[in-house]
Design a protein around this nucleic acid. Structure first.
Length: 601
RNA sequence: GGUCCCGUAGCUCAACCGGAUAGAGCAACUGCCUUCUAAGCAGUAGGUUGUAGGUUCGAGUCCUACCGGGAUCGCCA
């Protein structure tokens, strides 16, 4: 939240019309303060320019009169009257109205929007890009699934949310580093090694039983087989097989994970190994740092309030003073066997992130990590002397359905739906889009059958259809008019409420980018895409009732060219927004949806 | 029991830093294909934003308590 506040002050270089007018209105107020029309002590920080909820009120609205009325000793309507002529003189303003408790509503003229369209038509993705982030380094960590099995649908959501967020932040002008934290330390990796070794023996013809506590998943057969291919039977009678099989299995599974992720367009800048953080001294360095600051001590934790675990006994251990940074209790750094806790390794990770120059850290995790947020925030604050911005967006679970019927998953039996299963069924584009059709902390239903449905009920299809429809119109236009250049179209032909309405929807894009980036909510891009598609489909249909609104009018090339400019604008913005969420736009939708997207991304 | 997330139309969900009359889609009902892809569009109807207080010019949004659903709770990661 403080992040949002801080960035609001940067004058950003983008086509965000709300920011543009906020800056202009604030400077105009300063002018009035200089010439003593208004008291020169006004604090304009709360002055905002926003979209009126009801578009009938105008294109922009400012609360200036309401937030400044007390300070200036004027009533809001009178203050609004003072501001009105000044605002009217801003370029692009068509009309200014005062409404309700003192809202100042601003209507922009068509020319202003035509200029926006011209920028969109340049087509080099400048429109929508923002300098909001000032190239500030941001480290985005996501997926970070344990390398003990294949990625599941649940991981896929975090992966897609994280990756889209990273792309979004880059679009908003941040210098983003995409990071995968490999949990290759700890007991689970030992279990993995043991399990892999069993499968190796099995591959060599032995009959095995999987003991309680080992991973039963069938996928480990492949690992055992691969180990046999590479190593022969040399590990059969050795007792020190564990280190080798640990590493072999982790590498094998990480390769699979990387390959799966690559298939949905996700590649990382950095893979951070928990194990190496321990072995290369990162953990020690980080803990020394905390020690120096007096943030570590030997102590005994109170038992959890309420229900006491059966085996609870007071124990002295090394604790981190996370309560100094807002946590509820101090957190243990070492287990009773002397090895570090997961949290200690995470602290080391934070330390390294900060040492690499990143004060902004975003970690996308599953909702089951909810209880971890506070201590992680504490740790990052401790590491950065309070200079850091840490956020941990939570992704709620995904329930998988097939035509409304739940698909059962059981981790215990080793049967779960892998990312690859879903990818094979629906393709990467569908998957990425559907995963963003809910706010990430809301549970999401993923229905195989519906994901491939070719109807407006499928948001992916709905949006792609708009893009394909735009492409189709441009193709028809070429047949009708021969080669043409939309850049030379006379845009004043678009001066009708229907077409200006479509253009207004397009003009929202830069603002969506900035708002979504600040809120760390990539799903807003997917929602916006649906708005654009809707505006476009709606316009298309208007042509049925009113021939002058048809995209192509054979005997009116002028208007057709203007329409084609707008159609191209729609196409560009959809393609640009799809790119932000890592989805390839489709030019045609004649065939099967899955086949169409098979090669996308 | 502690902590975190969620609670908005019959269903699934939006709502931009606290702004105006809380918006879409589905389902229901009514229309629109000799026409650029009807795989679509338009319209009607549907609400005490879980409850009760508080903060202020103004609250779905912030604060407190409660109710309901989920997650999590030292030597798992």
């Amino acid at each position: 939240m403080s992040v949002t506040f801080a960035y609001a002050w940067f004058k950003t270089n983008s086509m965000n019309i709300y920011n543009e007018f906020e800056v202009k209105i604030k400077s105009l107020i300063s002018g009035l303060m200089r010439d003593k029309t208004l008291p020169d002590t006004l604090d304009t920080t709360k002055v905002a320019v926003e979209a009126p909820r009801d578009s009938a009120h105008g294109d922009l609205a400012t609360n200036a009169a309401m937030v400044l009325c007390k300070q200036s000793g004027m009533n809001p309507r009178a203050l609004a009257e003072t501001l009105k002529p000044e605002i009217e003189s801003i370029t692009g303003v068509e009309a200014v109205d005062i409404a309700g408790p003192g809202f100042i509503n601003i209507r922009l003229n068509s020319n202003y929007y035509f200029q926006i369209l011209q920028t969109i038509l340049k087509g080099d993705n400048i429109f929508g890009s923002s300098s909001l982030g000032q190239q500030k380094p941001v480290n985005v960590e996501y997926v970070s699934a344990n390398p003990t099995g294949p990625l599941t649908v649940g991981h896929a959501r975090g992966a897609i949310v994280g990756d889209s967020l990273a792309r979004l932040l880059a679009k908003a002008g941040f210098a983003v580093r995409k990071e995968y934290y490999i949990n290759d330390a700890g007991n689970q990796v030992n279990v993995l090694g043991e399990s892999a070794y069993l499968r190796y023996r099995e591959a060599l013809g032995e009959k095995i039983t999987i003991p309680e506590g080992c991973y039963p998943g069938e996928y480990l057969k492949e690992v055992g087989e691969a180990a046999k291919q590479q190593e022969g039977d040399q590990w059969l009678d050795k007792s020190d097989y564990l280190p080798f099989f640990r590493e072999f299995a982790v590498n094998y599974l990480m390769d699979e994970i990387k390959s799966d992720l690559h298939h949905i367009g996700i590649d990382f800048d950095l893979f951070y190994s928990e194990k190496s953080a321990v072995s290369n001294g990162s953990v020690d360095r980080a803990l020394d740092y905390l020690e120096e600051k007096g943030l570590l001590y030997q102590g005994v934790l109170e038992p959890p309030k309420g229900k006491k675990p059966d085996d609870w006994e007071p124990r002295e251990q090394t604790l981190f003073r996370s309560t100094d940074f807002g946590d509820d209790v101090d957190r243990p750094i070492k287990k009773s066997d002397g090895t570090y806790t997961y949290f200690a390794n995470d602290i080391a990770h934070f330390y390294d992130v900060y040492q690499d120059g990143y004060k902004d850290l975003i970690v996308v995790v599953g909702a089951d990590h909810g209880g971890y947020v506070r201590r992680a925030t504490s740790a990052f604050q401790a590491m950065t002397d309070g200079e850091g911005n840490f956020s941990m967006p939570l992704c709620a679970i995904v329930t998988v359905l097939n035509n409304g019927k739940p698909v059962r998953m059981s981790k215990r039996a080793g049967t779960f739906i892998t990312l690859r299963d879903v990818l094979d069924a629906v393709g990467p584009g569908v998957m990425r889009f559907i995963m963003l059709t809910r706010q990430s902390n809301q549970t999401l239903e993923f229905d195989y059958a519906k994901a491939l449905d070719q109807s407006k009920d499928n948001p992916y299809f709905y949006v792609q259809y708009a893009h394909a429809r735009a492409c189709s119109v441009l193709k028809h236009a070429k047949e009708m008019f021969g080669d043409f250049d939309v850049n030379s179209a006379d845009l004043t032909k678009l001066d009708r409420s229907e077409t200006i309405g479509v253009l207004k929807t397009l003009s929202q894009w830069p603002r969506i980018v900035e708002q979504a980036a600040l809120a760390r909510e990539p799903h807003r891009v997917a929602f916006y895409l649906q708005d654009v598609a809707s505006a476009f489909h709606s316009w298309w249909n208007m042509g049925r009732k009113d021939a002058t609104l048809r995209f192509l009018i054979e005997d009116d090339k002028e208007t057709s060219m203007a329409h084609l400019a707008l159609v191209t604008g729609v196409k560009n913005v959809i393609a640009d927004a799809l790119d932000v969420i890592g989805v390839e736009p489709l030019n045609e939708l004649r065939g099967d949806l899955k086949d169409e997207v098979g090669e996308a991304v």
